[in-house]
Design a protein around this nucleic acid. Structure first.
Length: 421
RNA sequence: CGGGCUGUAGUAUACCGGUAGUACGUCUGUUUUGGGAACAGAUAGACUGGGUUCGAUUCCCAGCAGCCCGACCA
């Protein structure tokens, strides 16, 4: 994409109404636009990142046998009354609205009820199970306090998967596999080395739930991390009994701030029973279906990456989720430089390399460099009189200080390579 | 939801009970071009409503909005 055609512009100043690093950098870079507190529009650059994250998750969900759906945001109150989750006393973050005839509707903050209700029309035999269904869908949560940019919004895209099983053993197997799937996702997205499975409160039905916490000082949660074992305990369940249970030693744990980027937990029959979602076994006996639930907030994911990896100049995207792989800068107004840069842009594009081409005129080198640092695209390729004198292109990684002059062939080779993280 | 802070242009601010000034940004043009360039011109503002007052951006009240701390986060 030619940067001169990109309708968004970078900004030099901090937004006045944001304090968090993720929001500041995303707004300055033109990745997102703040609509109101906790509500953000995704602009072309931001959407590209979001879609990359989405695709990594989708591939992993499909790999474990998930079937993708897309459920509605509008919610029928009757379904939620069945599980006692319609009342504002029970669920305090509903957005509710009304039809013209005054009938109440909700805007979904999660989707267990409608999904389970729908499945009663499809699932009735042990032969139909196990089953895993997922979606990427906008959730609405009427947070009392939206905060930290896109880390905690009122409207956000979430991947939610629900699994359905005949037995506790089958559930357990799937659940264990899901832990690995989640680890893969964070690994592939470039924050695997900072993300730890964390034991957290399991609610009414199971001892623990598992959160995936990315270490960063901007985190909302406090966790106690055993770096050797690579697992952590959330402060909310941090006590001697739990440590004993998990075989952790108190003096080996380090206190860290972290962002919960994903969580998985057991639902047992909490939802299948009220809706009579059940299966008939080989002997003709009817049983309620066992469920699990697996969430990842995509916006929060994106924000966490920034909080964890950015430096004082701007964002540093991991290759796998960067909006573009290469940021090609043409410096100066020299027509030979522009010609050469255009040639390189075409060559990269033909190879299918995602490249943002800073072909903007009347812009100083310093401004282009500053913008490149802000946008955080993994590779910066500079074409200038200087680089042309050396018969090459200056390639520099965003994460590194120094670049080097390389030939076009080599650039094409490097940029066509699969992700390195 | 409890507590705190704040609302003057895109950003940072100034003055003032007599209708708002500066800097940066942004836009246009000219000259520049390896780490946010120079000059010229232009653009753009008192959160909303009510009260006091001859007169309110300024004082008072209410609302709204934003940020922060806490609580909450299935």
């Amino acid at each position: 994409m030619r940067q001169s055609k990109l309708f968004t512009k970078t900004r030099k100043e901090m937004p006045a109404d944001e304090a968090s690093k993720n929001a500041e950098l995303l707004i300055r870079g033109g990745f997102i636009h703040k609509e109101m507190a906790g509500v953000y529009t995704y602009l072309p650059l931001g959407l590209r990142v979001l879609k990359k994250i989405e695709n990594i998750i989708r591939e992993e969900m499909n790999a474990i046998g998930g079937q993708e759906v897309s459920m509605t945001a509008l919610q029928n109150p009757e379904l939620w009354k069945k599980t006692n989750r319609w009342s504002d006393e029970v669920v305090d973050n509903w957005f509710k609205t009304k039809l013209k005839n005054d009938a109440e509707l909700g805007l979904g903050f999660t989707h267990e009820e409608p999904l389970v209700n729908m499945l009663t029309g499809f699932i009735s035999s042990y032969k139909d199970l196990p089953l895993a269904i997922y979606q990427f869908q906008t959730k609405f949560r009427n947070e009392l306090r939206a905060k930290s940019g896109i880390l905690r919004g009122r409207e956000f895209l979430m991947k939610d998967m629900y699994s359905f099983h005949t037995s506790a053993e089958d559930f357990r197997n799937f659940y264990e596999k899901m832990k690995d799937v989640y680890k893969n996702i964070f690994q592939r997205a470039g924050i695997g080395h900072l993300t730890y499975m964390t034991f957290a409160s399991g609610g009414v039905f199971s001892k623990y739930s598992h959160e995936f916490q990315t270490i960063t000082s901007a985190g909302e949660d406090t966790i106690y991390l055993d770096e050797e074992k690579g697992i952590a305990v959330n402060k909310e369940v941090f006590n001697d009994e739990v440590l004993n249970n998990l075989g952790l030693e108190k003096d080996k744990l380090v206190e860290k701030r972290a962002i919960e980027v994903g969580n998985i937990f057991e639902l047992k029959t909490r939802f299948s029973e009220p809706f009579d979602l059940s299966y008939t076994d080989e002997k003709g006996q009817k049983h309620p279906i066992l469920m699990g639930c697996y969430g990842i907030g995509l916006g929060r994911f994106m924000g966490a990456v920034i909080e964890a990896l950015a430096d004082d100049k701007g964002i540093i995207w991991p290759e796998s989720i960067a909006p573009f792989k290469v940021h090609l800068l043409a410096l100066g107004e020299n027509s030979k430089v522009l010609q050469e840069a255009n040639k390189i842009y075409d060559a990269l594009s033909q190879k299918g390399v995602e490249v943002l081409f800073d072909d903007r005129s009347e812009m100083s080198a310093g401004e282009k460099f500053a913008d490149a640092d802000l946008l955080g695209i993994p590779y910066r390729a500079v074409v200038s009189e200087r680089s042309m004198k050396e018969n090459g292109i200056e390639l520099k990684k965003r994460s590194e200080e120094k670049g080097k002059i390389i030939a076009l062939d080599e650039l094409l080779k490097i940029c066509s390579k699969k992700f390195t993280n």
